Structure formats: structure tokens, C-alpha cells
Amino acid sequence: MHLVPAERAGHRIIDGHRVCDAVAAIGDPDRVRAWADRFSLLADANRLALLLALHRAGPLAVSDLAVATGMRDPAVSQALRLLRAAGAVAGEKEGRVVRYRVVDEATARLLDEYAANAPV
């Protein structure tokens, strides 16, 4: 049981090789937390809708995203602030207009997976 952390080594283990496989599959706790945080961003239907719109249509302004998603401008802005803080999206200013786009590659891959499995 070389992968079992020392603080858990004294626990009763039934299938040692599977426990080691499970520990290896879980991997680094910080990486697990980062992915959990990424999934929590996607767990909100409004944020997911914004990400899907941005991923598929490309850079969009807040007002355009509001029309596309049926959300109000302030709600879009608030969600984008959260997504921007998490590093999932970035805004590029063109004059007075800020257009947002998906910049996190891991999030983009998850959105691709969603699109590939969405009903037609």
C-alpha cells in the first residue's frame, strides 16, 4: 500500500491494490480543488448558458449576452465578474464596449464535450 497516506495506513483495507489505484486516480488534492471550483462555475445554469454562448459565438458584449440568454444586463455583468475572477473568461475593451470570451482551455474542452453530446 505504497500510495496510502501515512495518516490512513492503519485503517482496515480490503482491496489494497484498488485502494492504491483510487489514491492515484484522485491525485493531488490541490488539483482536485481546482477542478471542483471549475465544476462549481458550470453548476449554475445562467453561468453555463453564458459560457456556452461565448464559446460558440465568440466574443460578445454584456447586452448581447443578455439577449442571447434571456438574463438581465446586471445579472450578466455579475456572472461575468465571477467568471472573470475565476479565469474562465476575459474581456477586451473596444472603445466603450467590452466583449468577453472564454480563455480557460479546460473549461473550453468541457464546453466542447457538452456541445458534442447535446441533443440536436
Rank of each mutant, 00 (worst) to 15 (best):
M1G: 15
A6H: 14
A6V: 13
E7R: 14
E7I: 14
R8E: 13
R8K: 11
A9H: 08
H11E: 14
R12S: 10
I14A: 15
D15A: 14
D15Y: 08
G16L: 13
G16F: 02
H17M: 11
R18E: 09
A22R: 07
A22M: 08
A25Y: 01
G27P: 01
D28R: 07
P29D: 02
V32W: 04
A34N: 05
A34C: 02
A34M: 06
W35L: 13
D37K: 09
R38N: 00
F39L: 14
S40N: 06
S40K: 08
L41V: 00
L42V: 02
L42S: 05
N46S: 12
N46T: 09
N46Y: 02
A49D: 08
L50W: 05
L52A: 09
L52D: 12
A53V: 10
H55E: 06
H55R: 06
G58W: 06
A61C: 10
A61K: 11
S63P: 03
L65T: 03
V67M: 13
V67P: 00
A68N: 05
R72D: 13
D73C: 07
A75N: 12
V76W: 06
A79E: 05
R81T: 15
R81P: 03
L82E: 13
L83E: 05
R84H: 15
R84M: 12
A86N: 07
G87W: 04
G87V: 01
A88Q: 02
A90I: 02
G91Q: 04
K93Q: 15
R99F: 11
Y100T: 04
Y100Q: 03
Y100A: 04
V102P: 03
V103W: 04
V103C: 05
V103M: 03
D104F: 04
D104Q: 07
A106S: 05
T107N: 00
A108N: 02
A108Y: 02
R109H: 08
R109A: 10
L110Y: 08
L110H: 06
L110S: 02
L111W: 01
D112A: 03
E113T: 09
E113N: 07
E113S: 09
E113F: 14
A115D: 04
A116Y: 01
A116V: 01
N117H: 15
A118P: 01
P119G: 15
P119H: 13
V120T: 10
